[in-house]
């Protein structure tokens, strides 16, 4: 269980509390500047709130040694930065840094899961945006974390690869991993998340299963648009 209590981060988060369960996909949604990424970073132990705590399985995240925290939580930042022109395999192997090894089995499994085996030796500079996004996700998977925190993992992917990644994350969740991701697409959150946190102006506006939380009144309040849901459960689309 990942438990945030009364998180306050000046100008970004205003008294946010949430308990996030392993084995589920939790989506953090909200308009631009609402504090989604800050909340995710706090939940990953990468931002220290001015007050409030985050507990991982009953232990204060702030008290965990950086290495232990890194082994437990894999974090995928929003920016696809890779400073040096390393190969895909070397990039994915960076995910083993928390374990201080280069375990070939974990690296190969991550490459296979993200369908990158053919690109293994290719330098990052010669990848397309989508390939790079997949390689960066493979880097997170290579660390075999118990929690995956991803900041807009779908952003650079085409539709097919979005579906494939959501499938991968679902498989991870089914295997017991806690998946928390910031996303913009409300339809993806509606169709694929088990739980949705709506953040608005640094506060938690709603928290619960997507069908309850993403109702038209909440969407109107948070995004200021009049929208309606089309289709059936599991394959919904948002029209506006």
């Amino acid at each position: 269980m990942l438990q945030a209590q009364n998180l306050i981060l000046r100008g970004r988060l205003d008294d946010v509390s949430a308990a996030i369960r392993p084995g589920e996909i939790t989506a953090i949604v909200g308009p631009n500047g609402a504090g989604k990424s800050s909340l995710l970073a706090c939940l990953a132990g990468l931002l220290d709130p001015q007050s409030g705590t985050v507990q991982l399985s009953g232990e204060l995240l702030a008290d965990l040694a950086p290495q232990a925290r890194a082994q437990a939580i894999g974090y995928l930042p929003q920016s696809p930065e890779v400073a040096w022109d390393v190969s895909v395999e070397t990039l994915v192997a960076l995910g083993r840094l928390p374990w201080r090894d280069r375990d070939a089995a974990s690296i190969n499994a991550a490459l296979a899961t993200m369908e990158l085996e053919d690109l293994r030796q290719r330098p990052v500079s010669r990848l397309s945006g989508g390939e790079r996004a997949r390689a960066l996700m493979a880097r997170v998977l290579a660390g075999q974390p118990r929690w995956i925190h991803a900041d807009e993992p779908l952003a650079n992917l085409d539709l097919a690869h979005q579906q494939a990644l959501l499938g991968v994350l679902r498989a991870q969740a089914d295997a017991g991993t806690g998946v928390v991701m910031v996303m913009h697409g409300l339809a993806e959150a509606m169709n694929h998340a088990d739980r949705v946190l709506v953040v608005l102006e640094g506060q938690l506006l709603a928290d619960g299963p997507p069908e309850t939380v993403l109702d038209l009144a909440t969407i109107q309040r948070a995004w200021g648009i009049d929208a309606r849901w089309l289709g059936e459960a599991g394959g919904r689309a948002l029209a506006y």
Partner: peptide, 20 residues
């Protein structure tokens, strides 16, 4: 060495990999 390798992915990702 290992900390510099982690920094390849930017400061925040490096911290998530255990960089102090």
């Amino acid at each position: 060495g290992p900390a510099l390798d982690a920094l390849t992915l930017g400061e925040q990702a490096a911290r998530s990999l255990g960089l102090d």
